[in-house]
Design a protein around this nucleic acid. Structure first.
Length: 268
DNA sequence: ATGGCCGGTGGAACCGGA
């Protein structure tokens, strides 16, 4: 089973690029982020006509996540648990019903910029960086629950985290940024350290592997990228992993997203 | 070498992104 995560940066603007990609690359499951659409306006018929089951968790203007699956989806839940006042659409879960059940979580982790700090270095309450770290605390709690299930499960999406220096072309440019500053990396590592396998790094070492290139300043042409889209797998899911790769060529196509798809292939 | 964007909203600039 091939599963891809893809921040599409607007489903309406990306509809042709997206259907071309689905036709050519044919994921069994696609986790989409930044659909930038309310559920009612999501073009579900387009994907249903291609043989996908469609589940969305959208909002007006920005954010929004979705799952497309050729296999049946069950027990769909929307929103990351832990804060009923959080109205941003960044989390969706479902169980993919195949030879065995696989719990999949699609996520769009907050960017966190600008970083606003108090004099003691703590994040300013109510600011975007505080929201990012608070969201990651809730992600930790959900990750802990998933791990306790001892079943095949994964959390994948746009983490907005550059885990290590080798995951950026110019790491020094990111040291104070919300995507790479130490507390952000620590919060990510703390989740991984619950026992998750980071799919890509289980397959591929070394620098020069990116999943995002800014639209500005010719970043794609200069390969000035960062790796921020990740798969985290429970041990029972990691045991099934055959491969994990980044489909970077998609960034060079017509009217691309600024992110590209990241894939895993599972023996399931 | 150098400069440099894009999508959505709403109907012009501005927000949000990373």
């Amino acid at each position: 089973m091939k599963i891809a995560t893809f921040n599409i940066n607007g489903v309406k603007a990306r509809i042709n690029a997206l259907t071309d990609w689905l036709t050519e690359s044919a994921p069994d499951v696609a986790l989409l982020q930044e659909i930038k659409s309310v559920d009612e306006n999501f073009p579900r018929d387009v994907f249903e006509d291609m043989g996908y089951n469609v589940e969305t968790h959208g909002q007006k203007g920005f954010n929004g996540v979705a799952v497309l699956s050729k296999l049946p989806l069950e027990d769909v839940t929307r929103g990351l648990p832990g804060d009923d006042s959080d109205e941003q659409a960044r989390w969706i879960e479902a169980t993919v019903v195949g030879d065995q059940a696989l719990r999949i979580c699609g996520l769009y982790l907050p960017n966190g910029n600008p970083v606003e700090l108090n004099d003691d270095g703590s994040p300013v309450a109510g600011g975007k960086y505080a929201y990012k770290l608070d969201w990651m605390d809730r992600l930790y709690d959900r990750a802990q629950d998933l791990m306790a299930q001892e079943t095949p499960a994964l959390m994948a999406g746009d983490y907005n985290i550059i885990p290590q220096r080798e995951d950026a072309k110019r790491p020094d440019a990111w040291t104070k940024d919300a995507l790479h500053r130490l507390p952000s990396r620590q919060a990510f590592r703390r989740i991984v350290n619950l026992g998750f396998t980071e799919g890509f790094r289980a397959r591929q070492a070394g620098a020069g592997h990116y999943s995002f290139w800014d639209y500005q300043a010719g970043a794609w042409e200069k390969d000035d990228g960062i790796r921020i889209d990740h798969f985290l797998l429970t041990p029972q899911c990691a045991d099934l992993m055959r491969d994990c790769w980044i489909e970077s060529a998609v960034r060079g196509r017509e009217k691309p997203s600024d992110h590209v798809p990241v894939w895993i292939d599972l023996a399931a």
